[in-house]
Design a protein around this nucleic acid. Sequence first.
DNA 1: CTTAACGTCACC
DNA 2: GGTGACGTTAAG
Length: 362
Amino acid sequence: MSGMSSGVCMDTDLSSMLQRSSAPSHHHPNHHGYGPQGQMSSLAPMLDYSEMDRYRSSIANFYKTNVNMNMNNFPQAKLAARLAATPIFPPRLGAMATGPWGCHDNMNPAAMFWGRPKPNHHHGHPGHMASAHVPSAAMPQNASGNGNSQSGRADKSPLPGSQTHHHMAPGNGNFLPNYSGADCLNKQGHAHSDMMGLSDGSGCNGGGVMGGSFLGSLGIPPGVIVMAMGSAGGGISSEASSAFQMTGGQRALTDCQQHTNSSPCPSSSSPSSGVTTGGGATSAGGGASSAAAKRKRKRCGVCGPCRRLINCGVCSSCRNRKTGHQICKFRKCEELKKKPGTGGSLERPPSVPAGEAFRWFF
DNA sequence: CTTAACGTCACC
DNA sequence: GGTGACGTTAAG
């Protein structure tokens, strides 16, 4: 963990910008008028969208420029740059700039590009969590300031700037307002108890993981996202699919997402899914032999780490990607961490009950 | 026991 | 072929 707390204090233009402009949501949702159920009784007056637009432009620009240095190492950064300029989510949906830690102090541009919406009160705890407060700029409405070619995409958003959608992320950005509750917020937010956002999010239903990501800011349970994205026919799918592939176009979430017509990810038995936990459905030949079955397991796709979309950029696996050949430690599937033999036939983490995802969503 | 490195596989 | 990721194993 040493790497986590050290050397992650950003002193970049971005951070300074954020510190200056971003309101330090001080982790107490209620301070912002959020009801315990995520209702923002009085948020609107607190949001200054002109400011948000300003930040958005800044962020878009930031990623288009500064992040380039890390593009190679962090493909996500590319996406971040793109997303910073591409409104795949409804305008004012509430953007995200929380780092993978779901909290502050991750300086890796690639590792911090999703986040929470910027609470707009310019007072509070300036030193605290300010650095990660990339404002909602990550989800521009039109990225006007950058000559961005996709600036008009906001119109395509499936959820047009509805006031009912733009306030997903109270305070600390781990928000899942309606189903996680203040308890969760408190747990993950201020206390930093879930800085890594691993599946141990227990009461928070894994919110920590997605909480650090843009999905979390949708206020939709992680398990639902995949389905929602895919099934949203007229929805976020096209751009969102890119977002989901930010892990390098690999398998984690994209596995789920690719099967939009079938069952949702967690329990998907889709042939090519590979999300068959412990089901060695991987071998191309379909050898189906037990040996082949345990030959190479795949990520469950539903546990906290699996739902994490971005590499931390600081763990040994990330740092030694070339030699280590390992996935980011914080994205390492919980299932794969277990011994193959150990009856850990856990289909999904306790936090993601089988049918719950649908219930959440509907 | 944990971690890092290597071999190998899977996907593009 | 490049890249990401899992399995294995050696080192600490």
